[in-house]
Design a protein around this nucleic acid. Structure first.
Lengths: 341, 341
DNA sequence: TATGCGAACAAAAACGTTTTTGTCAATTCG
DNA sequence: CGAATTGACAAAAACGTTTTTGTTCGCATA
């Protein structure tokens, strides 16, 4: 019974206090100030349960962090920066971000989890990450009539708000660079096929090849996990194949680091006999041996864009169709790529 | 007005329905079943706001993820596994974990953030991570009379619930191994001094040295960030010093990988001329060159312990003083350490 | 000088639960 | 056989807000 305390203290009715606190204009500027001041002094905090019960607003944006495919890693370093960016923007708008974890990758349960999270009414808006090509979540969330933005695009007919990195451009650039280096047998170490960013990266890769009239070799396009182990395994299988590639473009720096290890194991010197480009510009990439040429993309800025978009959507300042932002990428050259020997 | 709908549908009063749903025993087993069944069919979900308003319970446990010291990384891979373990246990008890991010490391704001989070009433219990030696948060949270467990210990007179990894043992083992390899000038590349785990690692290191009557050389004990860059910089400064060490124990694998890069740069072969042990058994550690000897600690299991402890605390099945769990560590030998040459 | 109007505040209802208290019949007990 | 107890349910209050609907009063207008 907190607002009544505040009201009594001020000698006002609770309705006036409430309206003052919420910035309505049928309360005089003078009393509005008085209420605000006293509220701060007394440390008044509206009970979020009551507020939500009455108004349906929670001042919270939610995100469900997907279970990692490898072992138990839910949150990768990308997510960390991203969420940081989101939070810092939401903060300025009086919102905050809450994350909950998905303990398994099971699609059946996923729907139930999202359903629960939304109907549970803990959040006013949602952020969807790790979008798949066909992603049931966006339909589900749209039907719930709750604002949302996706990090990464998906395939759907309906308009929706998205923020994405230019994955296609990234792999177009990386592949082009390998071609310019004289490579013709360039392998693509990619992620799981279901994800949209995986398809986009493949698209960038094939576009670069076809631009230079290089025939596509399906045997050079591999899909696996995003981890070091997986990169190692895929590279290894390529190296023992009939016609090994002379260059690699990898979906993550971790995969590239695994690939480097595989090359090392077989006595192949990366940066001389094998040309490798990674993706992500992870903190480890600069300290690999050789230092990894990679693609840098501003994840934190992506997060900020998402945060801003969420706010606009919540306030009704924008329609989902208005929000499409493609973050540019930049290739950071180091020592892991080289001319064809 | 959802429970009333359900009640009408069943021809019962809302109070009976509520009591049936909450498992009270003054409702007959028959109707209890009937209510439960119908509730499931109809897809009834108690309004969390209303529930919280009345009972004060939220079925949520919260954690505030600290802002990363380097750049904007909030959540490292440790946190990912840990939170996964926590969540999976909480789930079995009908609770779930929500995380929110701390956007800056400022201590002033930290108190306010925790205050807000607790008073905001979004959670029934709290998890505190990245404990410092003197950590104002535990006093603050205790005063709020909300159950909590810390991941990592801290210095306080009051009893509190903690789960921790045996940091001291880990660095005792790592240092001992270096000593057994014949090393006498062993450097400690440690993290920021304020953290309790940093002190414990230092303690393990010094204990191993003093056991073998090796004099402590303060110049060999460095403190920095937990990142590759920092490991690189610290190792580099050691290598150009008057009396470089012949062995390194590092607070994280990332630091160790940075250190390896520094050695490589100066033509020092790690695993032959320099012996390095890391910590964490990160996925990258096995693919470093040379593969990193490191300390493995079961972060996910730690998370599960935390989850269970939280549940016991919430239910009143245990007092904070009862909950002290020290997770054992194990050294995983690879190729980065070696006999003194 | 009545009438209408807007500015500033207050009363009261409502949100969907949980909890306290109450009711009523059936059963047990002295 | 009447009184006390118990088992199963219902009525109503309460949680702390927001929102809808009043109310009062001074002031401009006709």
């Amino acid at each position: 019974m907190s607002i009544v305390l505040l009201a009594n203290d001020l000698g006002l009715s609770i309705s006036t206090v409430s309206r003052a606190l919420n910035g309505y204009d049928d309360v005089s500027p003078a009393t509005k100030q008085r209420v605000l001041k006293r509220a701060r002094e007394i440390g008044y905090r509206p009970n979020p349960g009551a507020r939500r019960l009455k108004s349906g607003k929670t001042s919270m944006v939610g995100v469900i962090l997907p279970a990692g495919t490898e072992g138990m890693r839910f949150v990768d370093s990308v997510a960390s920066s991203l969420l940081g960016g989101v939070e810092i923007e939401l903060e300025t708008g009086g919102y905050s971000l809450i994350a909950t974890m998905q303990t398994r990758n099971d699609l059946e349960r996923e729907a139930a989890l999202y359903e629960n999270f939304i109907k549970g009414g803990w959040v006013d808006a949602l952020l969807l990450v790790r979008t798949r090509i066909a992603d049931a979540r966006v339909e589900l969330v749209r039907k719930a009539h709750i604002p949302f933005v996706t990090y990464g695009r998906t395939e759907t007919n309906e308009p929706y708000a998205w923020v994405d990195t230019d994955n296609e451009k990234a792999f177009y650039l990386a592949t082009l660079r390998q071609i310019d280096f004289g490579h013709r047998r360039i392998a693509l170490l990619n992620g799981p096929l279901e994800y949209n960013f995986v398809r986009l990266r493949e698209k960038g890769y094939t576009r670069a090849l076809s631009k230079h009239r290089i025939a596509l070799d399906r045997l050079l396009m591999l899909n696996g996990e995003l981890s070091e182990v997986s990169g190692y395994a895929m590279c290894r299988s390529l190296l023992v194949s009939a016609q090994p590639p002379t260059a690699l473009v990898c979906a993550t720096d971790a995969m590239a680091i695994g690939a480097i290890a595989a090359c090392r194991e077989r006595g192949i010197t990366v940066g001389r006999d094998m040309s490798i480009v990674g993706y992500g510009n992870s903190s480890a990439s600069a300290f690999a041996d050789p230092p990894l040429t990679t693609i840098d993309h501003a994840v934190f800025d992506n997060g900020r864009h998402i945060g801003q978009s969420l706010l606009r959507l919540i306030r009704g300042d924008a329609k989902p169709a208005d929000i499409h932002y493609l973050e540019p990428v930049v290739l950071v050259p180091r020592k892991s790529d080289c001319k064809r020997s």
